[in-house]
Computed example of a mutant assay.
Amino acid sequence: MWNQHSYQPGNKQGSLVIIPTPIGNLEDMTFRAIQNLKDADLIACEDTRQTKKLCNHFAISTPLVSYHEHNKRKSGEKLLRLLQSGHTIAIVSDAGMPGVSDPGFELVKQCVENQIPVIPLPGANAALPALVSSGLPTDHFYFYGFLQRDKKTRRDELEYIASIRDTFILYESPHRLKETMKELSEACGKYRQASICRELTKKYEEIIRGSLEELHQWSEKVQIRGEFCLIIEGTGELPEEKDQWWLKLSVIEHIEHYLKEEDMSSKAAIKQVAVDRGLPKREVYQMYHVE
């Protein structure tokens, strides 16, 4: 257990400051974010060229260092040593909140493991503006991010998210949007309501609302440009009590029931338990094979 007091004096180590940056409109940059970027000893960024433009716009002269998906292990080790020696490091992605479908998680995890304060700033992101403008329920929602590219994994993911009770959020790139809308319509049903948000906060911001079938047809007819955030209606249904016979069982016991009583393979049993409990299959796999 570690109780972090973010702003108490006397901390001998540095701090990692998570700073969201605009997803399109530079006016979404906060005063606090600008000041923290100026005060940091170093800015770890996904693309130094992109962040340099932001820094130039706001007269930020703090040195930049590259930290992205392909160098995060080696770069992360160097950044950790600097943090341990008392440096304050700001981490940013090209746009939005670092660590959410962008680099950052691994460095945050290393800081937590080494009891180095991690200070998150609120700010720009695509998911919440897309959600609240969709017209779909917002009291409960599920952020999923990007679907995997591997076809089999993707099929399992679609099967899982199609059963989610609440509104869920996906990110998608322009060159995969048509395929994704087709797959969502097939997996969730063509009448499920959804919205597609394109180029949020930018000049060509567009929000298209309708059924999954209508949105799939729209994607086939237009020229696809920009980054997309998809908001999809959940099933709105709770599992019936009779289907929850497994409630008193642990996840391991639940899997073992299918192995012994239903003569399932471990792969099939894990998949069925994930469906029963509304959990990601990889999480159930981790519980069974690792824990």
Rank of each mutant, 00 (worst) to 15 (best):
N114Q: 15
Q115M: 10
Q115I: 08
Q115R: 13
Q115P: 01
Q115E: 14
Q115T: 13
I116G: 06
I116F: 04
I116P: 12
I116A: 11
I116K: 07
P117F: 00
P117H: 00
P117T: 09
P117C: 00
P117M: 01
V118P: 14
I119Q: 12
I119M: 05
I119L: 12
P120I: 05
P120Y: 07
P120S: 05
P120G: 09
P120A: 02
P120V: 09
P120Q: 04
L121I: 10
L121Y: 06
L121Q: 08
L121W: 05
P122H: 02
P122K: 07
P122M: 03
P122Y: 00
P122S: 04
P122Q: 05
G123N: 04
G123R: 10
A124W: 01
A124R: 04
A124L: 01
N125M: 01
N125H: 02
N125A: 11
N125G: 11
N125V: 10
A126V: 07
A126W: 09
A127G: 08
A127Q: 05
L128P: 11
L128T: 15
L128V: 15
L128H: 06
L128E: 13
P129N: 05
P129Y: 05
P129R: 02
A130W: 04
A130H: 03
A130M: 04
V132K: 09
V132L: 08
V132R: 04
V132N: 03
S133D: 04
S134A: 12
G135R: 10
G135Q: 06
L136M: 09
L136I: 12
P137G: 05
P137K: 09
T138R: 05
T138V: 11
T138K: 02
D139A: 10
D139S: 09
H140R: 15
H140L: 08
H140K: 13
F141N: 14
F141W: 11
F141P: 14
F141A: 05
F141V: 11
F141S: 09
Y142H: 13
Y142N: 09
Y142L: 04
Y142Q: 08
Y142W: 07
F143R: 10
F143L: 11
F143Y: 15
Y144V: 14
Y144N: 10
Y144E: 13
Y144C: 06
G145S: 07
G145Q: 07
G145F: 03
F146K: 13
F146L: 07
F146D: 10
L147T: 04
L147P: 10
Q148V: 12
Q148Y: 00
Q148C: 02
Q148D: 12
Q148M: 03
R149K: 15
R149Y: 05
R149Q: 14
R149F: 00
D150W: 00
D150R: 15
K151L: 09
K151C: 00
K151P: 10
K151T: 06
K151Q: 09
K151I: 06
K152M: 10
K152P: 00
T153W: 00
T153G: 14
T153L: 13
T153F: 06
R154P: 10
R154S: 08
R154Q: 10
